[in-house]
Amino acid sequence: MAERRRPAVSAALSGLTLAALVVLVFALPRALPGDPLAALDDPTSGVAITDPELRERVLAHYGLDQPLPEQFAGYVGGLATGDLGWSIARNAPVSGLVAAHLPWTLLLMGPALLLSTAASYVLGILAAWHRGRTGDRVALVGLTALRAIPEYVLATLLLIAFAVLLPVLPVGGARTPFAEHGSGLAALADVGAHLVLPLATLTLSLTATLFLLQRHTVVAVLGADHMLLAEAKGLPLRRRQFVHAGRSALLPLLTAVGLQVAFAAQGAVFVEAVFAYPGMGSLLLEAVAARDYPVLEGAFLVLALVVLAVNLLVDLAARWVDPRSAAS
């Protein structure tokens, strides 16, 4: 019975979450002080909408002259038909903007999550195994310190180190603009080179948290009876570390990864800002600066959906590695 009810309950919960999300992304931007039409004003060139009649027309064009409930109805109606609206500041369809920015964020977030999970898994086990020794202490102090550093600071440090002082990697962007690559492989290498620093930043940042958790879990696991039996069975060290200790710690790690997805998205936003990486972060930060309601609504919604989706993937992965999690 319980098993059968579960999907219904979780579906209802997901539905509620979505509804709350939709309301939130509508309300939050409007709670910010500022005028969305200010995005059309240009302090640099001194261009501004000075004609009140034009102002009214533009407001009407974006539906911002209507009372909030009607704006909300319009927004939800748009969502229902897959229309995310039109960006005021970028003068472009929000869905198009999201389509242009989201892949880069996925390219950053996905590998960062995978790499940080893998790195934390391995490092956490090794550190726990050699707890108290120099390597463990270095990792512990280093990653604890790393955790205290905000992503954008870390990003800036890496940027200065590897793009300015030692200019081996590009400073920003996701590709060399207008470069003509001889082959698809070269184009991919170019994308890769641009990805290195942002990915390293986000991965390090995520690893710091996950590593500490993994080390903690594994330290607890090391004293478990089954670890003693594994040794008694004469199993090789690596097998005991990465299969026996690791497998026990994998579920807590994956659970933590699930929780980290939101942080990864948030971290990606800041990291993208530093590296001028054209992902959702750049889109969002600019939309916040410009009070671009449609973009804020659409981008936040999509990003939240991505977080939910990745969470779902992590959940599936957790069930795969440990059937017990399906029951609990």
Partner: peptide
């Protein structure tokens, strides 16, 4: 071993 927790819980 005495402890039945000696079996790995996830394997």
């Amino acid at each position: 071993p005495q402890s039945t927790a000696s079996l790995h819980p996830a394997l």
